[in-house]
Design a protein around this nucleic acid. Structure first.
Lengths: 232, 232
DNA sequence: CAGTGGTCTAGACCACCGC
DNA sequence: CGGTGGTCTAGACCACTGA
């Protein structure tokens, strides 16, 4: 391995295995070569081979079976895309739209540095929008991404998702925190609720398969009033 | 380490660090001791110390900063109630219901110990349900809670939320991880989708105001197919 | 520059599987 | 039983941070 490629070996190995899987060299429910065999085949240590397989497991492409083997998980094409992900925050059957508030390039603040693993010098793209469903404001959303992930923010139209997808930078994993907060005056105005009403504050960090954090989003959402059973 | 505890060292170390964080020994935005220091402190190799930190990173409690340190990323807790929280996962105006699959008391497994801050001896209540909206299966959900939080699981009817609320044990903060996965055969059957279809795998840990983790839930949900704009 | 995390190795022992 | 994954070690080099 490792000719003309400066990326870590375990990622190279993972990519090779993924390519082989897509090319059909391995079939669903078939075991991969053993970790010891892979380490020899690729000329890496077993630890490194394992780390490569970790990547595939994380993406749901492979399942580990202790004492037995690592198996290709059953499915068609490896498209573990997180598509329509934040649509979870919206009602079904409503037409989503958004209003741009800001689209700027700025230095990352402390929180953004921490979440995205940046330095004080690093610049980020900050996208601020009101999200609507059927013309009704549902959320005030701020998305922050490292500038090297979104070099030309002007090219983003309505869908950040689509932009990232086209550039092969779609998060495959996300960490999301949900809290309740009380609407401030400004927020209440924006969301069309009463001041002090409970709203949801959602923070999300999206990660690439490599583990790099590429998206920090925080949003104030109108709480969805649950009719009957809170059905926790 | 490793007295009276057969679980892997890296989990023990992870749990120790988590306890220390919750006890307030580390403050948000503060760096943990270096990996080399930790490995010495706990008498493990650096690889093992790293693996422990991996666990914390995975749970969003710690952020790595190359060349600098591993930082606590704990967000602070709010006051208002998190009511109707997971209703976000459901469509509005649909009648929620559920089918019980299991309701059992068992020993906590390693992952549950870590997430809920338990020891191998601690018992947990495991609630396994299919969640429906208008009779349509939306999710296969497993909720795990420490036994002392839910001493009489039989008293839980349809709503875990309601039960916790009545006992004043409602989480006020939650950490949620969302991943995409492909439906296995069993899962596809349960959720009424095609094998290999993308489904969401949601892991959530709920915390009391005191900071104690009281709820670990993981669920496979049908992806909500967004009609037009993916509207990331 | 010294200290940090990121990667990698070679070798070891254990727990589990299936024959 | 042999082969598998699961864990662990001690030591090494690199890339990056921050004073």
């Amino acid at each position: 391995m490792n000719m003309n490629d400066s990326s870590p070996m375990y990622l190279q190995v993972a990519r090779r295995l993924m390519d082989d899987m897509q090319a059909g060299h391995y079939r669903p429910d078939q075991a991969l070569p053993s970790e010891r065999a892979l380490s020899e085949q690729f000329g890496v240590s077993r630890v490194t081979a394992r780390k490569a397989i970790d990547q595939l497991v994380e993406q749901g492409l492979v399942v580990r079976k202790h004492g037995s083997g690592n198996y290709i998980s059953q499915r068609e094409l490896p498209l573990p895309s997180l598509s329509g992900f934040s649509a979870q925050m919206q009602q079904r059957g409503h037409a989503p739209s958004s209003t741009w508030l800001k689209r700027e390039i700025v230095l990352a603040n402390a929180e953004e540095q921490l979440s995205l693993g940046l330095t004080p010098d690093d610049r980020v793209v900050r996208l601020e929008r009101l999200r609507l469903a059927d013309g009704e404001v549902m959320a005030h959303e701020v998305a922050v991404l490292p500038l090297d992930i979104v070099p030309d923010p002007g090219a983003i139209k309505d869908s950040l998702y689509q932009y990232l997808s086209e550039h092969d930078r779609l998060p495959v994993r996300a960490l999301q925190q949900i809290r309740a907060a009380n609407a401030t005056e400004v927020l209440a105005e924006e969301l069309g609720v009463e001041v002090g009403d409970a709203v949801l504050f959602v923070t999300r960090v999206g990660y690439l398969a490599s583990g790099r954090a590429v998206e920090l989003t925080y949003a104030y959402c109108r709480s969805l009033n649950v009719a009957q059973t809170p059905s926790y």
